[in-house]
Design a protein around this nucleic acid. Sequence first.
DNA 1: CTTTAGGCCTGACGGC
DNA 2: TGCCGTCAGGCCTAAA
Length: 271
Amino acid sequence: MPELPEVETTRRGLEPHLLRRRIRTLELRDPRLRWPVPPELPALVAGRRIQGLTRRAKYLLLETDGPSLLLHLGMSGSLRRCAPGTPLKPHDHLVFHLDDGFEIRLHDPRRFGCCLPLPDAPAVHPLLSALGPEPLSEDFDGGYLHRLSRGRRAAIKAFVMDQQVVVGVGNIYASEALFLAGIRPGRAAGRVSRREYQLLVSRIRTVLTDAITQGGTTLRDFVREDGTHGYFRQQLRVYGREGQPCLSCGTLIRNRRIGNRASTYCPRCQR
DNA sequence: CTTTAGGCCTGACGGC
DNA sequence: TGCCGTCAGGCCTAAA
């Protein structure tokens, strides 16, 4: 599932192949994504030169010398760089034809992703304007989470998955970070101590950076820009391990629904 | 204000 | 074998 590490892996893989390239055409094979891709989008970007590929939260910003684009991979999306002549697959919805002959294809079976034009001031875009801090930035720390969480009754897992609180942390990495910090996912966010938040922030940082190093987590759909898998799945301690023994203490991993999400945890290691 | 539920979408899976 | 209900998940909107 594309959370921050998968999006960042894709960004890093694609950027060197995109910089200074020109978009010859954008082929709209199926515009039915989370929001319909505007029919005028191909005309807006045709002939434009790519000046950057940046990331904000789980969004990718494709910057050109004309209009820029906002891309999201939803939960089953991937961007692949394909050599000329590579056969199209089902669910290859968008194809950027570049001036070096290569193609960048947005593949998204469940179509929860998006591709939208971005205004000149990206920060005012409604999808970006209310986002919380980046988890790997300086302004995200234990004190911030502690302050923001006072009085909140929502589960801490739902709290850290709230993109207005901190971005990029989805179900997989929230589960893993809470395990590494020894905190039960169902505890009220407002009852978690400052010290625990400091530890949690540290664990969120390490789990995200480790996952980026491994190329992200492939469960089913996610592939990197070159078609290879991410390898962080092998490092998962609790996610997807319901009923299996905890790697630290041997207690069986439990699964509880929190905020309508599967939440796996070790009842002994996490308090 | 915070919190929750529903909806979008496809494919895998289990039960009958 | 084949049909069908359920689940997965990010993130929106609407409603409580």
